[in-house]
Amino acid sequence: MSEFRVRTMADMMAAGEETEILFWVGCAGSFDERAQKITKAVAKILHAAGIKFAILGTEEACTGDPAKRAGNEFLFQMMAMQNIETLNAYGIKKIVTACPHCFNTLKNEYPSLGGEYEVLHHTTLINQLLSQGKISIQGGAFAGQRITYHDSCYLGRANNIYEAPREIIEKLDGALVEMKRSKANGLCCGAGGAQMFKEAEEGTKEVNIERADDMLEANPNVVAAACPFCMTMLRDGIKHHNKEAEIEVKDIAELVATAMDL
């Protein structure tokens, strides 16, 4: 990040500065090359909004979500308790994350293990910042573009967040077009439930290719995602159909950062 320095909680603590919000980056956002771009877009937006935020840096560990969904409750609770110890030590009150899986776990599954925080997904926070005028989108970077939104299962069905991402897209000046299966009826990208980390079971088709068919049918210029795992699956699906030149897959945060000229 050449424009500004992203600071860690340890930095903030050492400098004796207050942090408004912790940016929980997540494993995909930290290590996956494509997802890192989403992470940077979120950081730029937070910076542009003048929010004092920090990351945990090397003190962050996986929330344990894939272990939990794969049935390894021991490993999940070990990860969770370590993270909760770190978060509580810093007195974290509010967290934003760009990963719906981290979001769901932090929000729903940490409280009964002793980790109670206000947890926001980045689409909710960005939508709030836009509504409050703390950030604004100028120009028509997406004017005339058809944008379709792929619901992440862990935002949508799991947590009933359907509108925030759509409201942001509406503000982008493009045309929001829905796929035939959307919102509560949205089709999974194929990554959840630890499927990301294994081969698919024997069948006739990959789930992400089935989803790519839905995307092509909607005939968009841009597919908007809100999850780094969906990002991987959707891009692979588009590539499978050799459409990567025509259809871009972008995270909502990246679309906003582009529209803000960040």
Partner: peptide, 24 residues
């Protein structure tokens, strides 16, 4: 393998935990 990575590297992939903030 994913479990093992998570135990050893705090991530489902085999990356060094020390590299977690390299993107910054």
């Amino acid at each position: 393998s994913m479990f093992t990575n998570m135990e050893n590297n705090q991530a489902p992939w085999q990356f060094s935990p020390m590299d977690r903030a390299n993107w910054t």
